[in-house]
Design a protein around this nucleic acid. Structure first.
Lengths: 228, 228
DNA sequence: CGACCATTTGATATGGATCAAGCGATGTGG
DNA sequence: CCACATCGCTTGATCCATATCAAATGGTCG
């Protein structure tokens, strides 16, 4: 049986502490990839891996949240995705990470060696298929992201709120782990435009903002209409 | 051995003619997926498959070129990708196509039943891995596309030209199979902006346009500088 | 309390969209 | 073979959504 016996030594020094094994299944069944792995803790804004670094591990958010991003030569930053508890990230087919990853808030991340998973996939077709499905899910997410980026500011923000609402599975009210700047860089807007748009949505009674990080959907239909 | 013995009967009626088997390998080796399949012909602007249709086949461009796209409810169109000879498209993990696909010019496309490939992948890990790699390649492409969409008009057009140049593997001069409108919908710009930007690049001696569909890169460094 | 940081709000500027011709190639029918 | 319609592309004038620049507000922590 394949297990993680040591703390992944190549990991970022900033990682605060090893929090222990997530679970320890008796043996590796199909699809159990996500059950193995070592839980580690990353503080707010701590880098989990950097763009172009060798992709040696696979990550799953246990608690907290993660952003992946690229920075263009002139400083513009594009946030590629936000990962919430339960989400897997860092899966690459090439040998290097395409994006950088950072914890948005203090987060616990389950980590598993890529070589372990790939060895498993080479022997077990179900595992291979699972890896493929994870990649494909990511592909779908990125395709939707492209559609976001051709919309107006209002539509982007509305789509973003609906996406977050569905992902946090809180029917109406939820908390945003990320800053306005993170949202802006995800949506391809400026922080001011995001802020103004949120204010406008609040003024038109589509949403409510008890605090800057808390959102209550007041009129989901109105948001949906802004979706394209 | 698995082969295509009949014309895929579910295919679009507009498909002009079956052009014959691409190749007929003696037996299916790893990675031979792309060698099997039936060649079919699609006329200019003919739909190959539609968004949300069951994804029953896998496609490879033999000659010509293909665009995939989505149309938003208000008529805006987003072109997801252009596929040139040698490129595989239509690969989905879900059971339906995420985009529509159309031949941009008269094209010959090699088609293989998805069930055939998946059956092969279930038994042969190399085939499974190949499918995964194709999906991942697509993911990388889409990620790059996102980075395009946050750039300025000049940068988008410059990046597009460099991308096409590298893909057509013609060092400096190449032909664009797609219209200005296709390019605009790919880059998230209007046709007027694309046209103006190309004219501007020509005026600044970065490129030359012998005709509207022919491009000569005059100053690759200048284009590169516009890349971010 | 005071410093700091994130967010909001306001005033102005601008890149690209929109609206509107004009132009050149291609094809068709007389 | 030419007149004319059509289509794809270019060019020009104007407008507007969002960026940019600037300042005020509010929450958090020592």
């Amino acid at each position: 049986m394949l297990t993680q016996t040591a703390i992944p030594s190549g990991l970022k020094r900033q990682a605060i502490a090893m929090a222990g094994r997530t679970t320890a299944p008796a043996h590796a069944d199909h699809g159990s990839i996500e059950l193995m792995g070592v839980a580690m803790h990353f503080g707010r804004n701590v880098e989990i891996y950097g763009e172009n670094e060798p992709a040696e591990y696979l990550y799953k958010v246990i608690s907290g949240s993660v952003r992946t991003y690229k920075v263009l030569s002139d400083g513009r930053r594009q946030v590629g995705a936000f990962y919430l508890p339960g989400d897997v990230f860092g899966l690459e087919v090439g040998d290097r990470h395409a994006f950088s990853a950072e914890a948005i808030v203090d987060s616990t991340i389950s980590i598993i060696k890529r070589s372990t998973v790939e060895a498993l996939a080479a022997r077990d077709n179900h595992v291979a298929r699972h890896l493929w499905a994870l990649t494909a899910q990511e592909l779908k997410r990125v395709q939707d992201h492209i559609l976001l980026l051709i919309k107006t500011a209002q539509e982007r923000v509305a789509s973003f709120l609906l996406e977050m609402a569905s992902r946090t599975s809180c029917d109406k009210a939820f908390e945003l782990p990320m800053s306005r700047q993170d949202i802006a860089d995800y949506l391809g807007l400026t922080i001011e435009t995001v802020s103004r748009t949120l204010t406008h949505l609040e003024n038109t009674a589509a949403i409510e903002l008890p605090s800057s990080r808390q959102v209550v959907l007041r009129n989901r239909a109105a948001l949906g209409r802004l979706n394209g």
